[in-house]
Design a protein around this nucleic acid. Structure first.
Length: 558
RNA sequence: UACCCCGUGGUGUAACGGUAACACAGCGCCCUUUGGAGGCGUUAUUCUUGGUUCGAAUCCAAGCGGGGUAGCCA
């Protein structure tokens, strides 16, 4: 039994919040999820969403979704759409009443950011700097003051206004905070607050040609929105003194927001960084952002992963400051655990081999009872047609089996799930020596519920009636990479798993014709499957979300 | 190099000064009309060394190891 999201999570951030509440520091908790709209959301974002929305719902607060759109050269409206789709899908009924009116945009605060910047200049806490980017870097590394550091307030005010008015070229000047050029923390060495970019912004168009930097925009956005706990990943840890400096410099009253950092998610057999995901898409190594092998939220969704799985996974991995590497097996376990409870069982044969039951009447069809979900008595029963000609899984027959193989073999018996015990009498081969069909006899008394139904037969296999089966395309997905840490050494793309997708033509039991995209299915003995959006009325397309645990595969390897 | 952060079984986490717990993975057994699920069992000098304390995974110091930052990206 795995802990579910109903258990209240506990971590160092929630401890701090609980203490803040106990001391009455804030009237209401307000968190935020601040993606930059320059790519699709991935499973690492899912961790952050579960954290921020989880806190909002546990502490009766609100979580804002805010587009951090301060760099017009990288951001696109297309991404805003995909981000909101993913957030809403993940948050759904779990916490949708804790969403703070969505989405918000940092770009909506550009005017306020500018006014605050003017305040800063006026109080002598910021100045316009004419150095080139290279000079700025060099001086910062040396802890040397810019030669423009001591400009008068009047000159700074004038220059900043003219920056805004568009009088200067890209990169010609910046507005910098006047803090401490010698500070041990480089983010305090007079960081840039504004840069000049004559570029069209996806929302403000041509209105601005100066754009705020992350620290300035983010801190002020948090303050403007009344964020209480601004939670980000570890790489922003060294920015925290700047975050606090800005709040101090503007003399904002309490209650102020506070920044806390946690470790981002690392997952074995995958790459999570946006930069690498975009490479996979651009170089056509996957079919797109929503390729079911991608750890994007859209990819996982298409693969068949549910919001509940992602939430439980987030709960299972916890929140810490230790940069850990989570085993993909934990994600897979979370899927199996959830799907085992909810998935509807069906029979499907992925790689069919035909069998003929020589002593079963030609033209006869029986309807056999089958259980929809042994883990859920409310799921009920269905009937499966049975006849003389069947398909079974190619893997479920071996001419010369290894020890402990207890499926079908020449002269051997096996039980057909929900049906009869059969015995293989003859292996029919084509001219090339490939098996074309197996001829078997049925123990007609051994039907489930029949006189010899209790006979001990070691193996039970799935099957489907040949004349009743429906055809479907099944996409068998596996891990995208062959090594646990694809980006640990060298080029991650050289570790792509060539077998991460295999497409087969399957034979499915007729009940599957009524399958619904939102429902999860277990193809018995094979794995969990979900309908792909590529499905049409004529032809279903199934995605394998994850296989069942397979202890035989392990045994066979020995 | 400087500064910051982090070190608990193979992995991820818990234990909040009172004598190491849970999950995953692995291994073994039982059960099974899914080789699934389930059940039972099994695996630990808490990085090191000092210190504080009746008592330290927990507090302090140093060392070692790992990560992050040093864009006019976020």
């Amino acid at each position: 039994m795995t802990a579910s999201t109903e258990n209240s999570p506990s971590d160092f951030i929630r401890d701090i919040i609980a203490e803040d509440i106990r001391r009455g520091k804030y009237k209401q908790i307000r968190t935020r999820f601040p993606p930059e709209p320059n790519g699709y959301l991935h499973i690492g974002h899912a961790k952050s969403i579960c954290l921020n929305f989880g806190i909002a719902r546990e502490f009766g607060g609100i979580c804002n979704v805010r587009m951090d759109d301060t760099n017009p050269t990288k951001e696109e409206a297309e991404y805003v759409q995909s981000i909101m789709t993913d957030v809403r899908w993940l948050v759904d009924s779990w916490a949708d009443n804790h969403i703070g009116g969505a989405p918000l945009y940092a770009s909506d605060y550009f005017e306020q950011f500018y006014e605050y910047a003017v305040d800063l200049v006026r109080t002598g806490k910021a100045y316009v700097c004419d150095m080139t980017p290279e000079e700025t870097d060099a001086y910062r590394r040396l802890g040397k003051a810019s030669c423009f550091r001591d400009r008068s307030v009047e000159e700074n005010l004038d220059l900043f206004a003219r920056m805004k008015a568009g009088e200067f070229l890209d990169g010609a000047r910046t507005l910098r905070a006047k803090i401490d050029v010698n500070a041990a923390n480089v983010w305090l060495r007079d960081p840039v607050l504004y840069r000049i970019r004559h570029a069209s912004h996806h929302r403000t168009g041509e209105k601005w040609c100066i754009y705020p930097m992350y620290d300035w925009a983010h801190t002020l956005s948090d303050y403007i929105e009344g964020i209480t706990h601004s939670i980000c990943t570890l790489e922003f840890e060294v920015h925290r003194p700047l975050y606090d400096w800005i709040l101090d410099a503007l003399e904002f009253p309490e209650p102020r927001p506070h920044q806390y950092e946690f470790a981002r998610l690392n997952l074995t057999y995958s790459v999570i960084s946006k930069r690498k995901l975009i490479q996979l898409v651009d170089e056509k190594l996957v079919s797109g952002w929503d390729d079911p092998r991608m750890v994007t939220i859209s990819g996982l969704r298409r693969r068949g992963v549910t919001p509940g799985v992602l939430r439980t996974f987030a709960y299972n991995i916890g929140i810490t400051k230790y940069p850990s590497m989570t085993d993909m097996a934990l994600l897979e376990h979370t899927m199996r655990d959830e799907f085992n409870r909810i998935a509807t069982r069906r029979l499907a044969v992925l790689r069919p081999i035909k069998i003929v039951l020589t002593n079963y009447p030609e033209g006869k069809t029986e309807e056999l009872d089958a259980i929809n979900n042994p883990e859920d008595s409310d799921a009920g029963m269905r009937r499966i047609p049975f006849s003389r000609d069947l398909y079974i899984e190619r893997d479920d027959f071996m001419e010369t089996p290894p020890p402990k193989y207890f499926r079908l073999q020449p002269g051997g018996e096996v039980r057909l799930k929900y049906a009869y015990i059969i015995k293989c009498d003859e292996v029919v081969k084509d001219e090339k020596g490939n098996i074309s069909e197996l001829r078997c006899t049925v123990d007609l008394d051994s039907k489930s519920g029949g006189p010899t139904a209790g006979r001990k037969v070691k193996g039970t296999i799935h099957w489907v009636s040949a004349s009743h089966a429906i055809d479907a395309e099944v996409r068998l997905y596996d891990r995208l990479f062959t090594v646990p840490e694809p980006d640990a050494s060298g080029d991650f793309k050289s570790f792509i798993n060539p077998h991460s997708l295999e497409v087969v033509s399957a034979k499915c039991e007729p009940a599957l014709a009524a399958a619904r995209p939102e429902e999860r299915y277990q193809f018995e003995r094979l794995g969990y499957f979900a309908l792909d959006p590529d499905s049409s009325r004529e032809k279903q397309v199934w995605n394998r979300t994850v296989t069942l645990r397979d202890t035989w595969a392990k045994e066979a390897k020995k």
